[in-house]
Amino acid sequence: MKTYKVNKIDVNHMTINGRVDHPLWENAVVLNDFSSPWHFESVEDIEFRALYDEDTLFVSFKVSDSHLHIDSTDDSKKSVDNSDRVELFLRSDKHLDPYYCLEIDPLARVQDFTARPNRQFDFSWNWPKEAIEIKSHFTETHFFVELALRMTTLQEFNLIQKDGTIEAGIFRAKYNQQQNGEFEPTWITWVDPQTETPEFHTASSFGKLKLENY
């Protein structure tokens, strides 16, 4: 499995504002190994970073995008589902029973849900509000998303293994306008799941986040 190293920082030294500009982000490894195995067009730059302290896992995305597509119908999960976004899936083991999905658009709106094998989705579920913080920002050329996830909740969901690893899928959906005027997504992933058609909801789409000195 692909592995990303999550460096440890001192507790209570990190804050997020949606701009990925806190000096501590310089201590994070930059992950930019993303591709779209099912499309021929090149993928614009995506930078993923993660850090953690005793209390919190911090995650950030910096995405190059000068043509954002945001469904502004309302603030429902469905509107997020029709918008450019980044995605973080977390699982307790390879059986995907269950796994937890966070899909976040440039407005910091989140589509959060639990899932089980064979695309059994529970959209009525929400990540505990006291255990997550989300901030975002966008410019003419980029959008940024930052997440702060409480370690206690990750532990309660059995998402941190004894060896300090978290099995995660890291994804992006980019909506492009077609000749007929409709918008269709290009699916972008860190780990190539080796599927014939785009598919993130499969065990082979996950890698590992390794918490250093856990």
Rank of each mutant, 00 (worst) to 15 (best):
I132L: 15
V6K: 08
P128T: 08
F143L: 06
N176C: 08
P117M: 05
D65F: 00
L159E: 03
D163R: 11
P128G: 07
H13W: 15
S79E: 01
I132V: 13
W38P: 01
D65G: 00
P23W: 14
F171I: 03
N213W: 09
S83G: 06
F58N: 02
V80P: 00
L102E: 10
H69G: 00
Q194H: 13
V30N: 15
W38S: 02
D122C: 08
N118P: 01
I104A: 11
F89M: 11
D45E: 15
E130Y: 11
D71S: 07
V43E: 09
E54H: 05
R119T: 05
I166M: 12
W127R: 02
I160T: 09
I134L: 10
D112E: 13
P198E: 03
C101P: 01
I9M: 12
N126V: 06
S36Y: 13
I132R: 09
I70W: 03
R119I: 04
L159A: 02
L211V: 11
K5Y: 15
I104Q: 10
M151E: 08
S205V: 04
K162W: 08
N213D: 12
V86C: 09
W190P: 00
A108S: 15
E167Q: 14
L107V: 07
T197F: 06
R116T: 10
W127I: 01
P128A: 07
